[in-house]
Design a protein around this nucleic acid. Structure first.
Lengths: 205, 205
DNA sequence: TTTGTATATTACTCATTAGTAGATTGCAAT
DNA sequence: ATTGCAATCTACTAATGAGTAATATACAAA
């Protein structure tokens, strides 16, 4: 049974509304950063795209760098969560790697993931860059761990984990540049094709 | 025997001097675009880095977009030339692909090649984007041709040329983001490691 | 009823920077 | 000599855009 609709909001509801607005702002910002680049996007534009004014962004998110940093943090969190989850999955090391890479692809063609790939370190303060590097390193470490596990259990051929991690990351990052979800190949199909192609190269012979 | 040094320059010498200055300007611009991003780099900064003033850039190169476009054209020309040259080489298809990818790496960690990778299409006018797309397509076509030749002569295992070209391009582009020539691994060694790792995945089994 | 807090606005300031106008110097050809 | 062109500068303009101050409204708590 649902409670009668009341125009008076509880503290929780207000909290949720605020969070919803925050996320809407971040999504709008990430989308525009990705489409036009960080420096070519003005906060006035972002605000206008949601029908609000610039100071409102400052109210919810702070200055322009903080907006970007938040977008990057979300994207990297998604990647790290995906890696963590893949590592708990059952199956061979290669099975787990495949699961991770597939999700890596989906994240990378989404607003926040694309933001991580398209933004150079240059845009942030040295403090921000340090934090960002640390987060990226965590993802890279997780990726290498998956590769090593696969080598150890024999599901992946003997390769150099470091170089392999770099080439895999590069191959997965590239679609953020050109792939469009509204194109002829749907995301699942594209992910499958790319990941299959990479896995074939890693299969033991 | 050398001609006596004269302070009076011939037309040819002046032509050469002009060209040298043009290239110095382009190199300086590309370097700063790569380090800080196109929009975060002012032409005043570029000029200052060479001890000249901004109008001089306009004299040699035109407006800011033209400066970038010239950098991108040079980078893409280098890639296309490398592809063309690799295709005339003797050996199996895979041998030629290896040669191309190795040069691809060297170009990608150089000023103009990095510029191609780091610049989004967004910065240019629609006219410029169209030209750029065409140049990129030429490089992609050449890469696919190399892959197909390798499949045909049996030196490369049966793969989808389109998807493989994308993953190879991605893996080769990635180092432009993080590789530093002054780091612990010299360019030749890094190129060899990356290319070997990719070739292993393409070898027939 | 008053006071405080969250949300949002308008209307500014101030710095940066693309691009231009106009002057200057020097060299070369007429 | 003079005219013209190449290279370069100083000094502007005009626009853009980050960030802030001051204000208004609504609602909730005291």
């Amino acid at each position: 049974m649902e409670k009668a609709r009341s125009p008076f909001k509880t503290a929780l509801q207000k909290q949720e509304e605020r969070e919803e607005k925050r996320m809407a702002l971040l999504h709008a910002a990430a989308e525009m950063f990705n489409a036009q680049g960080f420096h070519a996007t003005s906060l006035d534009d972002v605000a206008a795209s949601l029908g609000i004014s610039k100071p409102t962004i400052y109210h919810y998110l702070g200055n322009k760098e903080q907006v970007l940093f938040e977008c990057l943090t979300i994207g990297l969190d998604q990647l790290f969560t995906a890696a963590d989850k893949a590592r708990t999955e059952i199956g061979t090391g290669m099975d787990r790697l495949r699961i991770f890479l597939t999700n890596y692809f989906f994240i990378n063609i989404d607003d926040f993931g694309r933001c991580v790939i398209l933004s150079g370190d240059d845009t942030l303060s040295s403090e921000g860059v340090k934090n960002l590097r640390a987060m990226k390193r965590r993802v890279d470490t997780a990726l290498r761990a998956l590769i090593i596990e696969g080598i150890d259990d024999g599901s992946i051929t003997a390769v150099d984990p470091k170089i392999t991690a770099f080439t895999l990351a590069g191959a997965m990052a590239w679609p953020a540049r050109w792939y469009s979800k509204s194109g002829p190949t749907p995301p699942d199909a594209m992910a499958a094709q790319i990941v299959d192609s990479l896995m074939m190269g890693l299969a033991p012979r």
